[in-house]
Each structure stands twice: as C-alpha cells, then as structure tokens.
C-alpha cells in the first residue's frame, strides 16, 4: 500500500478516522439528533472522566480492576509457561495424552465456572482472580507447548553435539525459538483477561470498573455508563498496544539473533 510520508500523513491515517468519528458524534449530540437520554456526547464523557479523575474514583476502581487482571494473568504465566514447556518438550507422551484434555478444559465457558468460583471462593478477590487465571491460562499453556514443539530439532541436536548443557540449550535455543508463539499466547491471554474481567465484575463484585458499569446501568446514569465504557476501551487498547510492542521487541531481537 502506498504510504503518504511525513508526520502529517502518518497521523492523518492513524487518528483521522477517530477524530472524525468523535466530531460527528459531538455534532449529532449538540444538534439534538442523538437524544441525551441514551447517548452521552464526548464532551459529557470527558467531563465525567475529569470529575472521576479529580475525586479519585477512577484511580480506585481502575486500579482494583487492573490488579485483578494482573494477578490472574501473572498466575497464569507462572503456571502456564513452565507447564507448557514441560508438556511440549520434556514429557512429550504426557503432552500428547493430556492435549485433548487441555483443549477440552480451555473451551469451558468461564461464566458457567464463575458461579462455581463464587461458590467456592466467595465474593472476595479470589473468585475474580481465579476466573482471570482460568481464561488466561489456556492460550498461554497452548502456545508455550506449541512453541516448544516447533523448535527445529536440528538446532537442538547441533547444540547437543557441541556439548551444551541442558539448561543452556533451554535458554539459548528453546526459549528464543518459541518466543514468538509465547508472546502471541501472552497477547491473546492479556486481551481475554481484561475482556472477561468486566462481565465477571458485573456479576459479582463491589468495586472495579465492571461494578462501575453495572452501577451506572442499574441507576441509568448514561454519562457514567459511557465514561466507564470509554475507560475500558482505552485500557483494552493500551494493553493490546503494550503486548504488541513487547512482541515486536522480541521478534526483532530474535531475527537479529538468528542471522
């Protein structure tokens, strides 16, 4: 595709449609074509967000949601990556036998499980963290094991004949060549974690962005509803961008290392 060079052309393509969309939305709201009873204008959303930012509402609920997502995600990384490596690389037979079970578990509906988690862990933080752990675990585990299985055996054989120790083979060969898979799994998992957290918080939480949304829904506070949604979209995009960035870094490093 032809690229228009320069800063202007670039930012035109990157933000042009979003800016136009927001302007059109604002115009529709100010002219009264979109009734304020169910559409909040961008100005109103910005105002609500500013109010929340000042009174600490945003930080309180945003941070609690982020920390739930983070704990669940980190737990899933801590379990999923080693387990995936073990099942994909060291215990291949076990991996083959367990693979259907893992796929089977990965397709479980997290919301059917959420009722069970609530039952077992109660209304506290654990049930939400357990649910996020559950939804992030499967992409991470699956991709880690796939990544190890796709390591070129020639490299491993070569390294072995050159006398590299097992930990060094793991660190110098297995980890770098499975990194693209691993990061693709991490990115999928991070997106899922945050996407599923919001309904989970709507179903059973007393704080967090999901609670903010359900509270606005129940009280029919349209500006708060839109402001909460906007924050969730922004965080979702930021998480996606972060993992894209990390993935880009790792892939570049891998290409350099491979040459």
């Amino acid at each position: 595709m032809k690229r228009i060079g320069g800063f202007f052309g670039d930012s035109f393509y990157r933000f042009g449609s979003i800016v136009l969309f927001v302007l059109a939305w604002q115009t529709l709201c100010s002219t009264g074509l979109a009734p304020g009873t169910f559409v909040a204008s961008p100005a109103v959303i910005a105002e609500t967000l500013a109010k929340w930012a000042v009174n600490g509402f945003l930080a309180r609920h945003g941070l609690i949601s982020l920390s739930r997502a983070l704990y669940g995600f980190l737990l899933a990384v801590a379990v999923g990556v080693p387990l995936g490596f073990l099942l994909g690389g060291w215990f291949k037979a076990a991996g083959r036998i367990l693979d259907p079970l893992l796929k089977f578990l990965g397709q479980f509906n997290p919301f059917a499980l959420f009722s069970v988690f609530m039952l077992i862990f109660g209304l506290g933080e654990t049930s939400k963290v357990a649910m996020i752990f559950w939804v992030s675990l499967w992409p991470i585990l699956h991709n880690a094991s796939l990544g190890v299985r796709t390591v070129d055996p020639l490299f491993v054989k070569l390294a072995r004949s050159l006398g590299l120790s097992r930990p060094r083979i793991l660190w110098r060969i297995v980890v770098p060549s499975s990194a693209p898979y691993l990061f693709s799994g991490l990115r999928q998992a991070s997106g899922t974690a945050f996407f599923m957290l919001i309904p989970a918080e709507m179903l059973g939480a007393a704080r967090g962005l999901g609670w903010l949304i359900i509270n606005a829904q129940i009280n029919y506070q349209i500006p708060q509803l839109y402001a909460g949604t906007a924050i969730i979209v922004a965080i979702g995009l930021a998480i996606d961008a972060l993992f894209r960035f990390l993935e880009g870094q790792v892939v570049r490093w891998r290409e350099k290392a491979a040459v």
């Binding site: 996407f195 919001i198 309904p199 709507m202 949604t229 969730i232």
Partner: peptide, 8 residues
C-alpha cells in the same frame, strides 16, 4: 465490550 452498553 458491548455488554457494558447493554442498557443503550
């Protein structure tokens, strides 16, 4: 997340 905007 369309589930957020359900009332709308």
């Amino acid at each position: 997340n369309p589930y957020c905007l359900f009332p709308v």
